[in-house]
Every structure is written in C-alpha cells, then in structure tokens.
Amino acid sequence: MNSSQLLGITTFSYLFASILYAIIFIFKAKKLGIVATFFTITAFLIQTAGLFLRWKESYEIGYGHAPLTNMYESVVFFAWVITLLYLLVEWKFKTRIIGTFTVPFAFLAMAYGSFATGINKEISPLVPALQSNWLLAHVITCFIGYAAFALAAGLGVMYLIKNTSTSKATTNDETIIGTLPALQVIDDIIHKSMVFGFLWLSVGIITGAIWADSAWGTYWSWDPKETWSLITWFIYAITLHARYTRGWGGVRIAWLAIFGFFAVLFTYYGVNFLLSGLHSYGSS
C-alpha cells in the first residue's frame, strides 16, 4: 500500500460520504446518519495515514519534507482540514445535516487534486526557496483559514436554502428543510467559522510575509497572490465589521460567507492559473 493508493481511496470515500449525507438530507433517512459519520471518519483516517505515508516516502526517496509543498499536496491538506473541522462541528452540535453542505467540499478538493489535468502528483524535491519552516507554518495556517471559510460558505448555502423555504411558510419538522438546524444556529456557526478563519488567515498572511522576508528580503511585494490574500482578508474584515457594528446577520452574512469563499478560491487557484507571480510553484 502506498500513499497515492490511500489518497485515491480517500477520494472515493469522500464521494460516498457526500452521497450518504445527500441521501440523509433529501430522503430524511436519519438512520443512515451514523453510517455517513462512520464513513467520513474512516475516510479521514485513511487520508491521515496517506498523508503520513507520503511524508515517510519523501524521506525514503531522499527529499524529506512534509507533504505541503505543491498544488496537489495542498489540496489534499485542504480536504483534510475541512473534514477535521466538519467532524468537530458535527461532534459539538450533534447534527449531521451540516455534512451535506460541507463534506462535498472535501470530495471536490480531492477530486480536483486527483483528476484535474496539469496537477503533478509526484513527490518532488524542494527547490531552495521552499526550504523553510516558515513555508510550512504559512501553508498550514492559510489552509486552516481556507477550510474554515469553506465551512462557512457551505453553511451559508444551507442558511439560504432554509431561509427561502422558511419564508414560504411551509416548514415544519416533517419537511426536508425542517431537519436543518434553526436559522439562528446556522447564522451563529457561520459567524464563528468566519471569526476562526479570519484569525488563521491573518496568521497565514503574516507567516507568508516572514517567509518572503527571509527568502527575498521583502516582506510584502504586492505580488498577485499576496494581494489577493489581502483582498480576501479585507472581505472578511468587512463582513465582521458589518456584523459587529452595523448589525448585519442572516441572509446578508450568508451571502458574504459564500462571496468570501469565492475570493478564497481565486486566491488559491485563480491566481496561479490566471495571473503570474512568485507563487508559481503552485502551478505545477
């Protein structure tokens, strides 16, 4: 068994888990809930093993570095953090429906990593610029932030779905929508995820700046990736202020959570493929 097999299994397990969560939601098949959770946990454990194995393999080849250094490894890590955060939320809130809107993100990230063209899955050595512990700190912190924002966006979609149907006043506990948590609760988790993500994104941007400074002597050079991470940071800062000081909540914040996540995606993927910059390592 090698790491790419394990990560391949992970992709399909996340797909299966996503389908299970969808079934629970659409067919109100609550009894399947425990199965979905079990599957997600299994997939998560397989993925964890896969990541560690990949780490070990990189040492066997003689390159020796944590699996966080190219586009493929970063999407795998992204999926891993999304699942971890989701499982924590599920455990804390004892509700599985949220999985319908968040586990697919983990699957999509894995699927993108596995099947998209132009993604190099090889374990490759680190070019000199990437040989830094600040890089590790940077990638880890950024992706925790991104994953929290993914969660917030998934919950944003959930909020909007629940809200549209609630306003039609057809809802009771027997309908599909009724199984979703109360709007206030969703709103609250969205907010908390964004707060959490904002803190980590801030740390991510800062560690990135420290890395740039130790490698090139400039902590901020306005390259497109840096600039987009700052734009994303601004968007969430605006969202938090709108909530704290202008009392925004509910639908508006749900939309902002989704909108903010598009900025995250653009920072993450868009910049690599549509714009050019220092972070070109991500495009291989």
Binding site: L88, V89, K92, F93, K94, T95, D173, G178, P181, A182, V185, D188, I189, K192, V195, F196
Partner: peptide
C-alpha cells in the same frame, strides 16, 4: 474555537 460552539441545537425553540 470549540468552546465558542457551545450552543446546543434543538429543533424546538
């Protein structure tokens, strides 16, 4: 962060 999440979910308000 987890501590932040301490509102129990109840379907019935």
């Amino acid at each position: 962060w987890l501590k932040l999440f301490s509102i129990p979910i109840s379907k019935h308000r």
